[in-house]
Amino acid sequence: DRHTIHIGDITIHLEGFSEEELKLAEELIKRGIHLEEVKRILEELYR
């Protein structure tokens, strides 16, 4: 499954994450956390 996060003019595609995980990812990215770090956090929390 493919999910999309929109932040301003930026569109990020993250596959294989639930709606809850994507909301967390979006919040972290909006707070300035680097995408690679966001992915690592999600994997630690949900895998």
Rank of each mutant, 00 (worst) to 15 (best):
Phe17Ala: 08
Gly16Glu: 05
Arg31Ser: 11
Lys23Pro: 04
His6Phe: 00
Ile29Asp: 00
Ala25Pro: 01
Thr11Ala: 05
His13Gln: 12
Asp1Ala: 05
Leu14Ile: 08
Ile12Pro: 04
Glu43Leu: 02
Ile29Tyr: 03
Glu37Thr: 09
Glu19Leu: 13
Thr4Ser: 10
Tyr46Pro: 15
Arg2Tyr: 14
Phe17Ser: 04
Leu22Ser: 07
Glu26Ala: 12
Arg47His: 15
Leu45Gln: 09
Lys23His: 14
Ala25Gly: 07
Ile33Trp: 05
Lys39Leu: 15
Gly16Asp: 07
Ile7Tyr: 06
Ile33Ala: 05
Leu24Phe: 12
Ile5Glu: 08
Leu42Met: 08
His6Gly: 10
Glu44Asn: 04
Ile10Tyr: 07
Thr4Tyr: 00
Ile10Leu: 06
Leu24Trp: 08
Glu36Cys: 04
Arg31Ile: 07
Lys23Glu: 06
Lys39Glu: 03
Glu27Lys: 07
Gly32Ala: 10
His6Leu: 04
Leu45Ser: 05
Leu45Trp: 14
Glu44Phe: 03
Glu20Gln: 14
Arg31Pro: 06
Leu22Cys: 13
Val38Arg: 00
Glu37Gly: 02
Asp9Lys: 04
Leu22Arg: 08
Asp9Arg: 04
Glu26Ile: 11
Ile41Pro: 00
Phe17Asn: 05
Glu19Gly: 13
Asp9Glu: 10
Glu36Met: 06
His13Tyr: 12
Leu14Pro: 02
His13Ile: 14
Ser18Lys: 11
Glu26Gln: 11
Arg40Ser: 04
Tyr46Gly: 15
Leu42Gln: 00
Asp1Lys: 06
Val38His: 00
Ile10Gly: 07
Ser18His: 13
Leu35Ile: 15
Lys39His: 05
Asp9Ala: 12
Glu27Tyr: 04
Asp9Pro: 13
Leu35Met: 13
Gly32Cys: 04
Ser18Leu: 09
Glu36Gln: 06
Leu45Thr: 03
Ile5Asp: 08
Glu44Thr: 01
Leu35Val: 09
Ala25Gln: 01
Glu15Trp: 09
Gly8Asp: 07
Ile41Asn: 00
Gly16Val: 11
His13Phe: 11
Arg2Gly: 14
Glu43Phe: 01
Ser18Tyr: 10
Glu26Lys: 10
Phe17Tyr: 14
Arg31Trp: 10
Leu35Gly: 05
Ile12Arg: 03
Val38Cys: 01
Ile33Tyr: 10
Gly16Ser: 05
Leu24His: 14
Tyr46Trp: 14
Ile12Val: 12
Ile7Val: 12
Ile29Val: 13
Asp1Leu: 01
Leu14Gly: 04
Ile41Phe: 08
Lys30Ala: 14
Ile29Thr: 06
Thr11His: 14
Ile12Ala: 06
Glu27Ala: 14
Glu26Phe: 10
His34Lys: 14
Leu35Asp: 05
His34Leu: 11
Ala25Thr: 05
Ile33Asn: 03
Leu22Phe: 11
Leu14Ala: 06
Leu28Cys: 02
Lys23Tyr: 06
Leu28Ala: 02
Leu22Ala: 11
Leu14Cys: 15
Ile12Phe: 02
Glu27Cys: 01
Ile29Arg: 02
Ser18Asn: 11
Glu43Trp: 03
Gly32Tyr: 06
Leu42His: 00
Ile5His: 04
Glu15Ser: 11
Ile41Lys: 02
His34Asn: 11
His3Gln: 07
Arg47Ser: 14
Ile5Cys: 02
Leu14Val: 11
Val38Ile: 11
Thr4Gly: 06
